[in-house]
Amino acid sequence: MNNNLPLVSIITVNYNESQVTIDLLTSLRHLTYKNVEVIVVDNASPNDDPSIIKETFPEIMLITSEENLGFAGGNNLGVKVAKGDYLLFINNDTIVPEHFLEPLVETLQKDTGIGMVSPKIKFHWDPSKIQYAGYTPMNKWTIRNQSIGYHKMDDGSYDTEGVTASIHGAAMMVPGHVIEEVGMMNEMYFLYYEEHDWAEMIKRAGYSIYYQPKSYILHKESLSTGKNSPLKTYYIARNRIVFARRNFSFKYLWFSMLFQTVVSIPKNLITFLLKGQFEHLKAFSNAIFWNLTHFKLTK
């Protein structure tokens, strides 16, 4: 351990994917940045024995939750025991190169006005293609944003670092003092949009969100929830509206809800119906109903 380096707490959440998590931890063992603590939170995996993770990597801290707390809640358990100057939240379905941490730490050390930083994210199945090189601002009508560089070749065109509209939950580093000031992720989201909500909280506190392409990870993407599962349909549809309700001004919230009511919701319902995707239809309907029956949102 190099005590001259700030301590980085690396937090990852496991859910029924011990071998996937082990693959990540294997790559973390090769990091050239040595002052780290690794915290694995098992989110009450029903079909997995996370003890194999601790047996294989005795140096890590394994926290076993008694219930599935979702992405935000699982990571927040890790935050509560983390001792690092900087906290890195990283998906368990990722692989990191050995020099991954240094550019992220240096970015936050050089500019204390940065509240979050994400690396370039590339697809594990094809490392020549980009998944994330920053985000566009959230569209006030559709409540969607676009990942810059998505599916583009990593040919150097997306190697300019700088402020971006939002963070990527697959890999994001946050200074400990920012979390103390702003608070942890809102656990109401459970899955999806929680990192965007957190980014908005941090921006409102006066910090910027940063993209650092000198660092990168490889992402296997949506292993625990499924790429097109009804679970994913439910939480994305529900939380898209939750995000707007929590973060848009009254004027933009009114516009976005009008668009959702007249265009987006009918379009999705008809699409699921015509395709015979009845499980997705039910999940989407339940997501809208949840927002209609939950008038007060937690802060």
Rank of each mutant, 00 (worst) to 15 (best):
I265G: 01
S256F: 07
L253P: 00
K267Y: 15
F278D: 06
I236K: 06
T233Y: 02
N286H: 14
K220M: 14
I265D: 02
S229D: 04
M188H: 09
E181I: 10
S249M: 12
V262G: 06
W198T: 03
S224M: 13
Y193Q: 02
Y234L: 13
F190G: 00
N286Q: 15
R246S: 10
S256M: 10
Y193R: 06
G226N: 07
V242F: 03
S208N: 09
F190R: 01
K227V: 15
S285F: 13
F295S: 08
N291F: 07
M201F: 08
Y211V: 06
I202C: 04
S256Q: 04
P213T: 07
L218W: 03
Y210D: 03
I236C: 07
K282P: 04
L281S: 05
H280N: 11
F278R: 08
S285E: 04
F255Q: 05
Y207Q: 01
L223W: 04
A237E: 01
F272E: 01
T225F: 14
L231R: 03
V242N: 01
S215M: 07
I270C: 09
F248N: 03
V263P: 02
R238H: 09
K227D: 14
F278P: 02
K227S: 15
Q277R: 14
V182C: 05
S285K: 08
